[in-house]
Amino acid sequence: MERKEEYADGFRKGIPIGLGYLPVSFTFGVMAVAGGIPVSLAIFTSLSNLTSAGQFAGTKLIIAGAGYFEIALTTFVINIRYMLMSLALSQKMEEGIGFFRRLLIGYGVTDEVFAIASVEKKKLTAPYMYGLFTAPVIGWTLGTALGALISGLLVDSVANAMGIALYAMFIAIIVPPAKKSKPIVFTILLAVALMILMETVPVFSVISEGFRVIIATILAAGTAAFLFPIREEAQQAAGPEYGEKSGQAGCETAGQSGGEEAAR
């Protein structure tokens, strides 16, 4: 594909992410301003951080007057998961993408951008990645601006209801591929079971939320990889003919190849 087409393809697939970000970033804007953060700083936070959980937690700490080290450590721990995601993406990147373009691509690796990019059945190009995170950056920043500006006008019941938006979006990403792949269902259930275990057993409950997510991720994905390894051919098999379809279709084929493989 041409560079321009690559960008357009990424951009198109990023639009649903950008729209999905609106209610979540709106909630962030409301929360930040209600806590005394200036509107402009709330918007700058979203533009510079471009992350959900870490940004919410870090901003709450700033509002609470915490020290820089605590802010840095908490945010970092919540965000270590991005290392796993970027590592996975590094394996799907087209050869020959230079250092500076990688610096730019790194900025846009969010959970949802990763979810779409990681199930693409083609090599990831730099223009595709730029396109993919364009709408999410706009949606995340714009939603924050809107939430920050009308923060005072919003009633609690609406703000409470918006709290679920982020999680609903995560569910929308993982459920469709899970329908077609038992190993993925296994991975999801194991990760959740581990989270519940760490939350309820007193010995583990001292572990911070961010670390729990990392531990659950490594154990669940590691166990699934051991029990249901995916052969190279299966990953490539569904390849070219699905490359042109939407991210959603990509998710399905990824799920299928996992499922077929496990059935052998």
């Binding site: 796993l84 959970d111 997510v213």
Partner: peptide
């Protein structure tokens, strides 16, 4: 991705 999004 499935593990991390589920855990979150």
């Amino acid at each position: 991705p499935y593990a991390v999004l589920a855990a979150l």
